[in-house]
Design a protein around this nucleic acid. Structure first.
Lengths: 132, 132
DNA sequence: TTGATATGTTATTTTTCCTAACATGTAATT
DNA sequence: AATTACATGTTAGGAAAAATAACATATCAA
């Protein structure tokens, strides 16, 4: 399990994200509304943000500063997401086993993240021991 | 502006700490009452925990498991604190903008999380640990 | 048995966060 | 100049989370 996963763990309430990013709650929710971020939700429906989310928000701020609008920022983000895996697999630059490893990890993460913000549970499921 | 700062940043609400440590709110407050941890407070008086706090809580759990009581654990912690000298900077107030600068800088490094074992009660798996 | 310790439970109040609706400043368009 | 779209502010009302405090209880040692 990778550090990307850990950065994706939803830990922070909106109040903290507001302080860290200097954005208002209104802004943060608005960006979510436009699918620029998708923070997890607690059982009680509260947004829980990951460090990745904070990262994205800081970048949104920058891009807005540069005069780019919601749609533009979304495009930028989408391009980035697509460029990491699609390009390399298109070119068959990675082996089958590598590809399967990526998929397996992604599925694992998705599964775990579903529960991470929501339930009390076995923390050891979230992490692996040293041999990473 | 170092890792010590990051790990001492109060970011997490008690609900998240409960999940991460598998402790009840009652337990966490009890340990605070006995000065084993001193989480920060929000403007509205809510406890905000740092990764250092979570670390400490995981260790408290272990020590309790070993039959050590509050006083004993306090002693263990105090001894540790006394043996490292730069601790007082934990209480140093830093401004929001400084905090943001730190965060931004770290985000760009994209290496916040690092490997470690959970069994040691060490949350350095989330962040770069001191020894790196 | 008594007493201390750690934790559970419950009641009450305060704080935080949610959604939704309406308002506003600014820049672009007509 | 008027209109429109966009990003954000503001407010209201309600729900969830968390605070304190008090009382309850299981376990263990004396």
């Amino acid at each position: 399990m990778s550090r990307e996963f850990r950065r994706a763990m939803p830990l922070l309430p909106i109040s903290m994200v507001m302080q860290l990013t200097e954005l208002t709650a209104r802004q943060i929710r608005y960006y979510e509304e436009h699918k620029l971020i998708e923070p997890a939700r607690s059982e009680g429906n509260r947004r829980m943000f990951s460090l990745d989310d904070v990262d994205a928000l800081l970048e949104i701020r920058e891009l807005l500063d540069q005069g780019i609008n919601m749609a533009g920022i979304k495009k930028v983000f989408d391009m980035r997401v697509n460029s990491s895996h699609v390009i390399s697999s298109n070119k068959m630059a990675i082996s089958d086993s590598e590809l399967r490893a990526i998929l397996r990890e992604e599925m694992q993460q998705a599964q775990i993240m579903q529960k991470a913000s929501i339930r009390q549970g076995d923390l050891s499921r979230f992490f692996q021991s040293k041999g990473e």
